[in-house]
């Protein structure tokens, strides 16, 4: 069968024409503002658009968690190179979060064909929390520690999980060959530049 070389063209066309259409709460179907709340289904990690009421009623439940935009830089993060090596994550870029369905910490890092997920050693995670108290208040399933140690960087962020998936998606779109190629690392650099901008803008707003 000949293939259509336009990827997910049907999805993109649909989104293009509906860009200004009213959005609806995926729970009660009520029309919602273009800036609205999102809930994450813990088991499937699916994102749902929600009206304020549904977000309030369902967020933080057993099945759903409310997603809150978060981007905090952790300037005094405590993690030695040896400890990092001990976590056995094969590349210097990863996010770690507490997964309710997995009943423990999970690491996700980018690779040639998308996200690679592996359980994160529970004792390693406890040590990280002990050395970095701010990790203790990470919201399970929706907030993650983002680690960037590429090219000598030692950057750590607390971010909402949507940003992590955005990074995974971006890497998948740009990855070429085994090592990724120049394009993907440029895209990753841009991602972190944007993230730092957001952190700074937010800090200015909130003093």
């Amino acid at each position: 069968m000949e293939r259509i070389e336009s990827g997910n063209w049907a999805s993109r066309l649909r989104r293009f024409v509906s860009a200004t259409e009213e959005e609806h709460c995926e729970f009660c179907s009520k029309a919602i503002a273009s800036r609205h709340a999102h809930l994450v289904e813990r088991a499937t990690r699916k994102f749902f658009c929600a009206c304020p009421q549904c977000a309030f009623l369902l967020g933080g439940s057993e099945r759903f968690a409310a997603l809150r935009a978060r981007a905090d830089a952790l300037d005094d993060f405590n993690l030695s190179d040896d400890d990092w090596q001990g976590f056995r994550i094969p590349i210097d870029l990863a996010f770690v979060f507490h997964s309710t369905p997995a009943q423990g910490p999970v690491a996700i890092y980018p690779g040639p064909a998308g996200a690679i997920e592996s359980p994160f050693a529970a004792d390693g995670w406890s040590r990280l929390i002990a050395a970095n108290a701010m990790l203790a208040d990470l919201d399970p399933d929706v907030e993650a520690l983002l680690v960037n140690r590429m090219n000598g960087a030692r950057e750590y962020y607390l971010v909402s999980i949507d940003r992590c998936y955005a990074l995974v998606g971006l890497i998948r779109r740009h990855w070429r060959g085994l090592s990724g190629g120049a394009e993907v690392w440029e895209a990753v650099r841009d991602y972190f530049t944007n993230l730092r901008d957001d952190v700074e803008t937010k800090d200015r707003v909130h003093g």
């Binding site: 069968m1 293939r3 259509i4 336009s6 990827g7 997910n8 063209w9 049907a10 999805s11 649909r14 989104r15 094969p90 590349i91 690779g111 040639p112 064909a113 998308g114 996200a115 690679i116 997920e117 592996s118 995974v168 998606g169 998948r172």
Partner: peptide, 20 residues
Amino acid sequence: TDAAPDLDDILIEMDMTALY
């Protein structure tokens, strides 16, 4: 993607740990 161009995204996970 050809079989499902109507999906927003297809996330492909791969266990490449050994390869790394």
